[in-house]
Design a protein around this nucleic acid. Structure first.
Lengths: 303, 303
DNA sequence: TTACTTGGTT
DNA sequence: AACCAAGTAA
């Protein structure tokens, strides 16, 4: 079931799937071809400094296989990104709050249409320890990224061309989930990777004192059960389950494994489930920022 | 611009490019087909022992994609190799001095025409830690390579058939370069690899206190600036610039990335630039040996 | 196409 | 030193 059936598009009709699929080649903004020397002289509407370039590298790494092109929507509260994958089964929602930067300034709302493959190429040039500053002008045709090595003996500056992206924006309702599971992100990744060797889909079953991941495939069946438990010394390793009613839903493992690329961003992951509603997989980041993935459940014959 | 226009051929006219291109299939010497058992009984004109087979492996790895067949010119001072790539834009010049071997003996000048792909196959059999001895007879039709494991519990012996190679030999003039840059070879490799994702060519701009590598491509522009700095503790990481006048030249990144395969041979690399003259990329090896690459700059419309 | 080996990165 | 990616060989 596509996500659109579960989330209502906020402003426009669903994008033609064909159109989405043929958008592989970036179509860059064709405004005046300003030479890069002029960048500094124009007024930067956005300027955001990230102590660790690593954060953006990992975020983009985690979503670039789901989404090719998308807008980074910047305003004074931070940088947001929302995009569906081509098949409209998964949705990525990223929020990098202003508090995650030091400093952060955005004088005017601006949408930066970025091809994530190109952004990956640029970010590859940043070492994880580099300090990253991103800048954009008003009505920008490039995104400016500056990497400084911590010893500041190297300074790399890249201008990434931007594109106009016609983006569907879904309204994501605030949901009271029937079950909310917190668990170590590495464990969730391991479970999904292990079960994917047996089957294409996994059933996640939340009950009062545990979560059970089960799958059935040609070569056999698998089931991993985690019991909720708390260790005050290592809260990252806690398995915590909040439940209003028991839930069992089935999801595509391919997507879950994909989401798990974000495991490097946070020691802990939160899974939120309710019947008839997409699964929410949330990685909390420092400064109230987050990376969220939504995945429509498989229902009926889909399984 | 081909290198021939910048370096004068020393003794013969330029090889027909077609001829060079059709020499892909090794044409082996067709002297008497002596059986390998006799090798030991004949007088070895050349005998050179290398403590680390690794050195030769890395050298050959670094040049085998540029050059298919070439002569190893051996005399009592060492083993030299000089060859242009097929397109005559790049030139490799290797010198393994006698001091780099222990021991080294060469009683008579001898040119060993080798197919580098074949040599790679043979060297693949050597583990990096092996002791390598190469031997050749007078007027040889094979090159004899012996690998001993350092524990000397394994002894591998290979005879590589040699070929007659009609080789152009360019005279490389001693140039006073306008700029000589020493920098960590790993950094140079990283910069070239990163920028290659954006563009086919890079401009290298040397000024008094820094080097700037810039490129412009379809997805955006990139610029990496290194400031010269010295750290007595880690001289390998120094960025040092000797300059008589500022220079800015443009080069093909494909070739530079290729040269950077040699980064494993030395922690440091030297870039020498002057206007109208090929770039020299030098990896210094132990015992005054070296591996040098020359690359013709892109000029005018080439950029 | 898959598995392994090698090299690079953290 | 361990992990991850890419290239190569089967």
């Amino acid at each position: 079931m596509p996500l659109n059936a579960l989330f209502k598009p906020r402003s426009r009709l669903q994008i033609q799937t064909d159109q989405t699929l043929t958008q592989h080649k970036p179509k860059y903004n064709t405004k005046s071809a300003r030479s890069r020397q002029h960048t500094d002289l124009r007024f930067a509407v956005l300027e955001a400094r990230l102590e660790q370039a690593d954060l953006l590298k990992k975020v983009v790494d985690a979503i670039k296989d789901l989404v090719q092109d998308c807008n980074f929507d910047c305003n004074d509260s931070g940088i947001a990104l929302q995009a569906m994958d081509n098949s409209h089964v998964a949705l990525v929602s990223m929020m990098l709050k202003a508090e995650s930067f030091s400093p952060y300034r955005c004088d005017r709302n601006v949408a930066l249409g970025v091809n994530l493959t190109s952004l990956t190429k640029v970010l590859r040039a940043a070492s994880s320890e580099d300090i990253l500053t991103i800048k954009a002008e008003d009505a920008p045709d490039v995104l400016n990224l500056v990497f400084e090595s911590s010893e500041s003996d190297r300074l790399s500056e890249y201008d990434l061309k931007l594109m106009d992206i016609d983006q569907e924006h879904l309204g994501i309702p605030d949901t009271e989930y029937a079950a909310t599971i917190s668990m170590p992100s590495a464990d969730f990744r391991k479970i999904c990777q292990d079960l994917m060797l047996l089957s294409e889909s996994v059933s996640i079953e939340a009950s009062k004192d545990g979560v059970k991941f089960t799958c059935a495939g040609d070569i056999g069946n698998g089931a991993v059960t985690l019991r909720s438990h708390t260790n005050v010394d290592k809260p990252d390793l806690n398995v915590d389950i909040e439940l209003t009613e028991p839930v069992a839903l089935t999801f595509s493992l391919k997507y879950l494994v994909n989401f798990c690329k974000a495991a490097g961003l946070s020691k802990s992951v939160k899974l939120c489930l309710s019947n008839e509603v997409p699964l929410l997989v949330e990685y909390a980041l420092a400064g109230n920022s987050y990376l969220r993935f939504y995945l429509a459940p498989k229902i009926g014959d889909d399984e």
